[in-house]
């Protein structure tokens, strides 16, 4: 299967890439890991006239923590880099749990977190994780940089807030104010499949009380869903069997699943509740083990 014809430019710098995108207009697209774009081009769901490959731009393959504790993930940091990241394993449990569950090892070697956010697939796992963590995306365009909160970044399925001549250069996860806890759980029919349902939970605690709660849901609606009522039910309270059960119930209520080949709506809702309870119940210091 071949995509339709396109011109290809391997940009050597961000400014060159932005110029190419500006000149290419609406028919130009950024090529990052290519693990969503190339399959779509082969199926001719996408037929850009110009591909601006950013893979050769130096200095974008990083992920690191700033002195203030925020985590920065560059546009060329691959899923596999995050899967093997000591930094995430020691400091960011929600991201560390999600990374190995994205696609399969071969796709993870090329696909990127930032590309995944840009792709804005309602089944995309990183979108929930970054939303639950209150992250943001830095866009680089002809007039410089701007920071877009993850909550405003996705406009709808496969639609993001970038202008056609903007490149997403990094995702930022803000510094936690308390101890970060949480996780990511995903039900898939087989390894490498997209989620039947996925749940991202990111909690900060001061030891006794939840100081911040982020809960986001994958694959159970037209786009990634932030379970705000469930978050509110946890904030300012301790993690007990009751608060956890309540958060699970409210998150399941926030889900808007459709019955499809992956499962019925009722089943998916049930998974959401179970996953919220399971992730919260595993957090150390939880007062009583939740059911």
């Amino acid at each position: 299967m071949y995509p339709s014809r396109f011109r290809y430019e391997a940009a050597r710098s961000l400014d060159q890439a932005v110029r190419l995108l500006r000149d290419g207009g609406d028919e130009a697209k950024v090529l990052a890991g290519g693990q969503s774009l190339i399959p779509m081009m082969k199926l001719r769901f996408a037929s850009p006239e110009l591909l601006v490959d950013i893979n050769n731009i130096p200095g974008l393959d990083y992920h690191h923590a700033d002195p203030d504790g925020s985590i920065h993930v560059g546009a060329l940091c691959r899923h596999a880099d995050l899967e093997h990241s000591g930094l995430l394993q020691s400091r960011q449990p929600t991201m560390a749990a999600a990374a190995p569950l994205i696609a399969d090892p071969l796709v993870r070697n090329r696909g990127t977190l930032v590309g995944s956010l840009c792709h804005a697939d309602p089944q995309g796992d990183w979108a929930s994780v970054v939303l639950a963590l209150g992250g943001s995306i830095v866009a680089h365009g002809p007039d410089g940089r701007r920071t877009i909160p993850a909550a405003d970044f996705v406009l709808g399925p496969f639609e993001n807030a970038l202008a056609h001549d903007e490149i997403a250069v990094e995702a930022i996860i803000p510094a936690p104010r308390g101890a970060p806890a949480g996780g990511y759980l995903k039900l898939e029919r087989r390894v490498g499949d997209f989620a039947t349902a996925g749940v991202a939970v990111a909690i900060e605690t001061d030891g006794a009380m939840v100081t911040r709660a982020g809960i986001a849901l994958t694959g159970v609606g037209g786009s990634t869903i932030k379970a705000t009522a469930a978050e509110a039910a946890l904030t300012g309270r301790p993690l007990t069997a009751e608060t956890i059960a309540e958060a699970g119930r409210l998150a399941a209520e926030a889900a808007q699943p459709k019955s499809d080949h992956r499962g019925s709506a009722t089943y998916k809702r049930h998974i959401v509740r179970t996953f919220v309870v399971r992730i919260l119940g595993r957090i150390e210091g939880t007062q009583e083990r939740a059911a």
């Binding site: 299967m1 290519g34 190339i38 399959p39 490959d53 399969d104 071969l106 070697n109």
Partner: peptide
Amino acid sequence: CDTTNCGACTVLVDGRAVKSCTMFAVQAE
């Protein structure tokens, strides 16, 4: 499969295993 699912096309690019049906030849420059 030619649809990025099966891995029969796996090669190493700079030491990393990737699906060569999901990478353009020009990208291997």
